[in-house]
Simulated assay, not measured.
Amino acid sequence: MSGHSKWSTIKRKKGALDSKRGKIFTKIIKEITLAARLGGGDIEGNSRLRQAVLAAKNENMPKDNIEKAIKKGTGEIGGGVAYEEITYEGYGPGGVAVLVEVMTDNKNRTVAEIRHIFSKHGGNLGENGCVSWLFDKKGSIIFERKSIDEDVLMELALEVGAEDIREDENEIEIITDPAMYESVRDALDGKGLKYVQASVSMVPQNTIKLEEGRAEQMLKMIDKLEDNDDVQNVYANFDIDDEIVEKFNS
């Protein structure tokens, strides 16, 4: 499966650790606040805010935290930090394409930290546009293969407008056009099909296979990027054997 889904699997397992929960909440609160600031506090009329609130609920974030973040974004609650959205692009070990989406109040600090992480783990930060053309913005809905009737899922997904279906031995990923994402997800919800992750994200057009040495180096690099307070999302086009992933995650 693509690096997008592979890393999503790793993050779900790592995200179960209590030590990560505070960082997850911080990232989601940033996204809610900015979404409300840019598009208003009406969840029904602001799709970006709607997705952020759904992500918060999926992480069991308290309702008060969600409401406070929205009010900060709309200006109903004063104070707070003005964040700037930036996407950094570069290469990881083996020439893997990497996109890093950040929200920061100090881009000089952030770019220095991101550049350091890249260089320390065998990569290098590139110019704007150097790898973004290798990714497409898509809706992604991921199911565990063992928990789903594959035939039912695939038939329904295509009926309701899914664009593509990708699979490996453990998971099935439904790919949608961003405009169709919510309607496809809602249709799957309506049939009681339980997914492990759903989001609009950057999906790689192709992947680069990494052997063990570079694979572990790549996973460590992305782990450090994910752990940075300013980083919201990381996308990469690697492909790594499941055995290496399990070893890294143990």
Rank of each mutant, 00 (worst) to 15 (best):
residue 1 M to W: 05
residue 1 M to H: 07
residue 8 S to N: 15
residue 10 I to A: 05
residue 16 A to G: 15
residue 16 A to R: 13
residue 16 A to M: 12
residue 19 S to T: 10
residue 20 K to G: 00
residue 23 K to T: 04
residue 25 F to H: 10
residue 25 F to V: 10
residue 27 K to I: 07
residue 29 I to A: 03
residue 30 K to I: 00
residue 31 E to F: 00
residue 33 T to I: 07
residue 34 L to M: 03
residue 34 L to D: 03
residue 37 R to C: 02
residue 38 L to C: 00
residue 40 G to K: 01
residue 46 N to H: 01
residue 47 S to G: 02
residue 48 R to V: 02
residue 51 Q to N: 04
residue 52 A to T: 04
residue 53 V to C: 01
residue 55 A to V: 00
residue 57 K to R: 10
residue 58 N to I: 00
residue 59 E to H: 08
residue 59 E to N: 09
residue 61 M to W: 03
residue 64 D to Y: 06
residue 69 A to M: 06
residue 69 A to I: 07
residue 72 K to G: 02
residue 76 E to D: 14
residue 76 E to P: 05
residue 77 I to K: 02
residue 82 A to V: 10
residue 84 E to W: 02
residue 87 T to D: 06
residue 91 Y to P: 05
residue 91 Y to M: 07
residue 92 G to K: 02
residue 93 P to N: 13
residue 93 P to M: 08
residue 94 G to Y: 07
residue 95 G to R: 07
residue 97 A to G: 11
residue 99 L to A: 09
residue 99 L to R: 07
residue 106 N to D: 15
residue 107 K to L: 09
residue 110 T to H: 05
residue 111 V to L: 09
residue 113 E to C: 01
residue 120 K to E: 15
residue 122 G to H: 13
residue 123 G to L: 14
residue 124 N to I: 14
residue 124 N to H: 15
residue 125 L to N: 12
residue 128 N to M: 12
residue 129 G to M: 12
residue 129 G to R: 09
residue 130 C to I: 15
residue 130 C to N: 13
residue 133 W to T: 12
residue 135 F to N: 09
residue 140 S to N: 11
residue 142 I to Q: 05
residue 142 I to P: 01
residue 143 F to E: 04
residue 144 E to L: 14
residue 146 K to M: 10
residue 149 D to C: 10
residue 150 E to M: 08
residue 151 D to N: 10
residue 157 A to L: 08
residue 158 L to V: 12
residue 159 E to Q: 14
residue 160 V to E: 11
residue 162 A to P: 11
residue 165 I to R: 08
residue 169 E to W: 05
residue 170 N to Y: 11
residue 171 E to V: 15
residue 173 E to R: 08
residue 175 I to V: 04
residue 177 D to R: 11
residue 180 M to F: 09
residue 182 E to G: 06
residue 185 R to C: 04
residue 185 R to E: 12
residue 186 D to R: 11
residue 187 A to F: 03
residue 189 D to V: 02
residue 189 D to F: 01
residue 200 V to H: 01
residue 200 V to W: 00
residue 201 S to D: 14
residue 204 P to V: 06
residue 205 Q to E: 10
residue 205 Q to S: 09
residue 205 Q to M: 09
residue 207 T to C: 06
residue 211 E to T: 12
residue 222 I to T: 14
residue 224 K to C: 07
residue 224 K to F: 06
residue 227 D to A: 12
residue 227 D to M: 07
residue 228 N to W: 03
residue 230 D to N: 13
residue 232 Q to Y: 05
residue 232 Q to L: 14
residue 234 V to L: 11
residue 235 Y to I: 01
residue 235 Y to T: 03
residue 236 A to S: 15
residue 236 A to I: 01
residue 237 N to E: 03
residue 237 N to G: 02
residue 238 F to N: 03
residue 242 D to K: 15
residue 244 I to V: 15
residue 249 N to K: 11
